[in-house]
Structure formats: C-alpha cells, structure tokens
Design a protein around this nucleic acid. Structure first.
Lengths: 347, 347
DNA sequence: TTGTAGGCGTTATCAT
DNA sequence: ATGATAACGCCTACAA
C-alpha cells in the first residue's frame, strides 16, 4: 500500500503538480477534462495529503496566551499550570509559543487588567478560564473583534464567540456526588451542602453542582434526605460548622462544592462520635491528606491539568495540521477514593 | 522571540549549514574553533530543531500491526478496536499504516498463528495484548530478534524485550474495589470473589486483582469480612450462584474480577430480598444496563480504548518526531457508577 | 575540514 | 488553463 503524492498523481494524470494542486484546493482555472481526470484519480487512490509537508510549507509561528487564576493564591490551579508547561515543552519545537498570565481569582479588575495586556500582544489564540461570568463575556467580545481565537476551560459559558470549551458537565457532577452520598449515608438523614469560596456571586460553578446534587436526591422514591445549603467564606466556616455539629441533630453527610473541602474535614475531625461522610472536589495536597485516612470519603476530580493540556493541544493541532477543534469537549468526571487518587495525580 | 533555524545559526557563526548540522549531530569533522563557536551559539539561542522539517526529511512510511483478541468473541475488546481505528484515521496522513489482527482469546494456537502471520509482514512495530503469558514471551523474543518494536497493553509482563506497557496496576485495582466494598457492605459480612472467564490458567489478570482485594480487606483493623473465592466458567455460574444464595448465609457483597459481572448481576436479581452489593469491571453495554438501575453498584473501568489509542500514539510520535516512549504508562483506574459512566463511554 | 546542492511533499508565484 | 520553479527547515552526499 503505497503512499501517493501530488507528484505521483500528476504523472498518472499526465498533468503538472500545479494542476493537481488547483483541483485539490478547488481554485478553478482548470479545464474540465483535466479536472475530471484528476478528481477521478484522487478518488480511486484515496489521496491523503501529507500533513507534515503541508505544515512545513505553512511554517508560521503561532502565539497562544493562557490566562488563569494565580495558582499561588488558589492551589486548585496548580495542575492547570502543569498542563500548560507540558504543552509548552511539547510544542516549542513546532514553532508554537505559549505564555502564561495569572490573575487574582477574587478580583475582577485583576482579570480585566491581564486581559488588556494580552490583547495588546495580539496573540493568535487565548485560553481563558472564565471564572467571572460577566467580565468574561465582555473580554471575549474584544478578542473576537480582533480575530483572536478564544478557547475556554473549567467554567462553561454560553456564547458563540467561543471556539472551544474543555471541561465538565457540572450538573452531572453534582448528581454523581449525590449518588455516592446515597450509597454511604443512611436514608432520611440530614445532609449539608456547603459552598466554600471567597466569591460565589459571579460564578455559576457551585450553583450548578448544587442543582444536580439536589435534583438527584429529591427524585429518590425510597428515601427523603433532609438537605440544607450554606454559602460560607472560609473565615466563617469554623464557627458556623461547630455550631451546626454541636447542636443535637442528625447530620450524616456533607457535600462541599469546591476544592476547599479539606477545611471541612479538618473541623469534622473534632467530632469523632458523629459518623459524618464527606464528599468534595479536587486533588489538592490538603485534600489527599484527608482522603488517605478516609476523613474525606470521596473526591471528585475536575482534572484541571488535563483540561488545560488538552485545550492547548487542540489549538496547536489546529494551527499545525488544520485539525478541527470540537466546540465542546466534556471530560469524564472522576470519582476518587483513598486507593485510586495517585492515578490522577502522578502524571 | 524569533525562531532560529540552522541557516540563521550558520550565518551568525560565519560557517555553513553543513557545519552547524555536524555540530548538532556530533558527527565530528569539525575544527575546534568552528565547534566552539557553534556550540556557544546553540546554547545561547537555545536552539530547537524544527521537528516538522526533520520529520519531512525522514519521510518514511511506517507499519504498525495490532494484535488483539477478537472483539466479536469478547466484547471487552470492542473499545480497543475503536481506539485503534481512531489512531488509524489520525495517522494515515502522516505515512503511518496500522493493521489489525484478531485472535481467539480462548485459544493459544490462534494467538500463535496470528503472530506468525504478522512476523512475516516484518512491521516496524507491533502492539500486542499478551493475554497468554507463556506464549507471549516466546513471541516477543521472535519480534526482538527481527528488530520489531514491541508495545504491550492491558496485561503486564515483566520482560525487557518490551518497549512499552500501557495499562493499569492490577493489584491496586483490586484494592480500589475493596475500599468501595468496605464503604457499602456492613462489617464482618461475607463477600464472594468470583473469577468468571473461559481461561484463567494462563492469565495473571484475575489473580492480581484478587490479591489486591484480599490484601486491603484483610488489613482492616475494625472489621473482619469473610471472603470466599470461586473460579467459574460462565456455564457453571447459574447453578453455583443459585446454590450459594439459596442457602442460609449472609453474603452481602460480590466482587467479580472480569467484565462478565453482568451475568452475576442478572442472577442476583432473582434474590430481591438479599441486599447484595456488586462490584465488577468494565463498561460493556450489558454492564451499563445494570449499573444504570443500580443492580451493579460500581464498575471499574480499565479503559481499553484509551490503552490502545495511547499506545499507538506513543509509537507514532516516536517514528515521526523521535519522541521517547516511556517504558510504562499506568492509566488511572476509574471508579464508575450510575451517574458518571457516559463520561467514559462517549468518546 | 568545509561548503554546496538537492530533495522530502506541498503550495504559491510567475511566466507561458 | 497550464507547467515550471522556488521555498518552508532539515539532512546528506558529494565536491572542494
């Protein structure tokens, strides 16, 4: 099974390479006879252009800017940085340069400022993490106006100026937590839903997870859990949770919708008599500590590293080999316990 | 940040492209002065060869043969075929051809025959699924003698003639099942371990899972499960399992070490009064049916599709871009329940 | 020891 | 409408 090139086809058709190229790219200026002959040959042979050669010919360099929350401020984003670094190394030999920009994920103006900066660079593409809903939409419009491709990860955003979203189905994510809770918490007990983050007004992350979680548990026919929701800042957590657990009650499960679940686990340790199951998010070092000793029962992995890496891969292969970028790529939602966590961290 | 080429460096060093090339590849025949000057420049500039250009220059075609159990006989292997097909499409435009060969995973001679056939083709690399331990070792030796690169998936094999293993840590896999069992089965109950397959003599798959499973549960300080192991053919299952569940007992969990867990779930449905938790392997359509209605509690995903795809990717990028192939790539071991299965099937 | 020329397959330009 | 030619960056023969 030989690999046919344009030269081969030209020879077979008795025309020149140029003509074959014109047919392939439908550039016109080809006689009907030549067109027919070449088209037929291309079909018969199932011609596949050599993408390596094509890429070499194009041989531009491309510039991608990554805009994400500062991993120093919120460690959730550390793996994201790792994914970006992997991509940088992978693609630097292909003429693709990637620059990282960080913003403070608690301050919208920091996000806006960074985006201004990036816009000035006029990169070929940006990868943004639209944690601020409203501001992201503004910013994306500007990129679109300047012909900058916009890919997003982590936070879904309905907007048709976006080329690609790599992330998870957050409602489903909540349902998964609910099903796990159902398996390990006795029927009809009380379950707390805790939103734990500095900013929840502008982000829909936590709301979607809560929605899925409630939706699943409310529709159970054979049990009726008592669900209570609390939106807390980390500074208020200690007092609030202590008061909740000190009062006579039958709290048996806590679902934390963010990666800060370790703070909850830490406090719950003070109540060894209560058998409280905890489910939360993400493989932070702090969380791993608690899942190892079963103080946290399940973590759901949002796989930030894979999100960022995959998203850049899509852009790179689009630039290099003209590979189509899927509008949306939903990553699997990993269930993590004390025994399988390192499969998701070691790489 | 400009991309430097050999031409640029030659100009800067005041030598010719050929000399620069000789320095880069340490081919010698370069004067000390030229060598120093060029080496220094390469360092300063952090020269990265353009891999696209290099690949084009090499422009060979490569041939990979995939040898796997027939997916018609055992549906576990269907996703594996999908992964291969994805790779075929992805790399056909890069001059890499991939051929699939199937064998009957219950007949060693079928495996040997297929390998003979492939050996005659003298491909550049083979991807084999060494389900037959002894025979695989023989076969791999032959490939090595003929300079055929050997990659393996799914079944680990200690042997230094192997370039790459893509798969999972099977002992850990058993431990994961055990931890899940611990969470959903009351203390001190009886748990069955069922090996369910046509051939278990020659495969170490099931033994390793059992080992991990027992190892975890035996070391629990606060509970003492009663573990019973059975190795069954599918034809014997019905009678055996009925007799086990009919007798007064307190079986509360069943761990099936293969993808045939659906057969067990089917039979257990006949005993609605017993609350029996079931954990097994893989996202076969049959299994999905039972996980959807919670008749199976957890499935562990061995991700055969990703295994085969990734393994071919490694080979392809080695051929095309000289990317190093890791000796071993352990994939995460996915925990699957009724809510997250489609993240692992839809793609 | 060094430089030059040519080609990998595709594409764009320029005469014809 | 067509064909020849050059170029992308790297590598290798071969000539000097």
């Amino acid at each position: 099974m030989k690999k046919y090139t344009i030269k081969d086809i030209a020879k077979l058709a008795g025309v020149s390479k140029g003509t074959v190229d014109r047919v392939i790219h439908k550039r016109g200026k080809v006689s009907q006879t030549a067109l027919d002959k070449v088209t037929k040959l291309l079909e018969e042979i199932d011609y596949q252009p050599n993408l390596i050669a094509r890429s070499l010919k194009n041989s531009k360099s491309y510039h991608i800017c990554v805009i994400q929350p500062d991993p120093e401020i919120d460690p959730y984003w550390q793996p994201c940085t790792k994914g970006v670094n992997d991509a940088i190394n992978e693609y630097k030999s292909f003429g693709i340069t990637i620059d990282s920009y960080y913003f403070n994920h608690a301050e919208t103006h920091s996000f806006l400022k960074v985006n201004e900066e990036v816009l000035k660079q006029s990169p070929d593409a940006v990868l943004i993490t639209p944690v601020f809903h409203k501001e992201s939409i503004e910013v994306i419009k500007k990129y679109n106006a300047n012909n900058v491709i916009v890919s997003t990860i982590n936070d879904p955003l309905e907007l048709n100026g976006i080329t690609s979203y790599v992330g998870q189905d957050l409602i489903q994510s909540g349902r998964i937590a609910a099903r796990l809770m159902e398996m390990i918490v006795p029927k009809n007990k009380e379950i707390l839903i805790i939103h734990l983050d500095e900013v929840f007004n502008n982000s829909i992350h936590m709301q979607l997870k809560e929605k899925g979680f409630k939706n699943y548990l409310k529709n159970l026919s054979n049990s009726n859990y008592n669900l209570k929701t609390y939106s807390l800042q980390q500074s208020d957590l200690d007092e609030k949770l202590h008061s909740l657990l000190n009062n006579p009650n039958n709290v048996s499960g806590i679902f934390v919708t963010t990666s800060k679940v370790y703070s909850v686990a830490k406090i719950v340790q003070d109540f060894p008599d209560l058998d409280i199951k905890i489910i939360g998010y993400d493989l932070l070092d702090e969380n791993i500590k608690y899942i190892k000793n079963n103080a946290i029962d399940f973590l759901i992995n949002q796989n930030p590293k894979h999100q960022s890496y995959l998203c850049i891969t899509q852009l790179a292969e689009y630039f290099l080999f003209d590979k189509k970028i899927p509008k949306q790529k939903l990553l699997p939602i990993d269930i993590v316990n004390s025994e399988n966590f390192d499969g998701y961290t070691n790489d």
